[in-house]
Amino acid sequence: MLKAIIMFVSAVLSMSFTGPDADEILNKVDQNMSSKNRIFESEMIIHGRRSSRTITSISYSVGNKQSFTEYLSPAREQGTKMLKLSNQLWIYSPSTDRIIQISGHMLRQSVMGSDLSYEDMMDDRKLTEIYSAKVAGNEVINERNTYILELIAKVDDASYYSQKIWVDTERFVPLKQEMYARSGQLLKRITLSDVKQVQGRWFPMSMIFKDVLKDGSGTEFRITSAKFDQVIPDYIFSKAALKQ
């Protein structure tokens, strides 16, 4: 009897959700968030237990395979550059004039003491390539209606086994993301806001990353300039560009 009631309630609940299916939603999210290439100027505000720091950078990305970031300020970080080609990452330090390759578990370490790991910065793949999705319900976030999607990794090399994302029902931009380990442990939470229309797409210009396993009040990531589908010279994505 109880089983029958549960099945009935589940059926009613699933019928109550009307709208696009999960794959369609995720596809629309990818259309907004991914592009052929992009140039971002951003500032990252890292809140430590003693003080806060703001780091500015410019980054160039082509698809999800090539990415180049140069840190512009403060003076301590100025000239530090990061190059990602496929799944390899190199960092150039002007103070030592060294190019160091980062690999293995070091990719899970924090970047500049922030709540982002190197892996977070490197994994720009489309969500549809990594996860299978299902709609888990609706919720209102900051007066915006959202679909709640539950994502489970369908590839072995996903940074996070599962995610829960809250997608704006009109703009198809995530407003909140939670990343989980295979054990179900919540690892990170991202709150996205300041959604603007840039070159015909909706894009969140402000994000707050929170590594829930770490003390502190999270890392703010603000995009001060976003340009999509630009002409980016190939030499930028070479190790030679790191030392220039």
Binding site: R53, R76, T96, I100
Partner: peptide, 16 residues
């Protein structure tokens, strides 16, 4: 050799 890690402030630390 280069020691690579984090400074007290969380910045990248490179020291030859």
């Amino acid at each position: 050799v280069t020691l690579f890690g984090s400074t007290m402030n969380g910045s990248m630390m490179f020291k030859n």
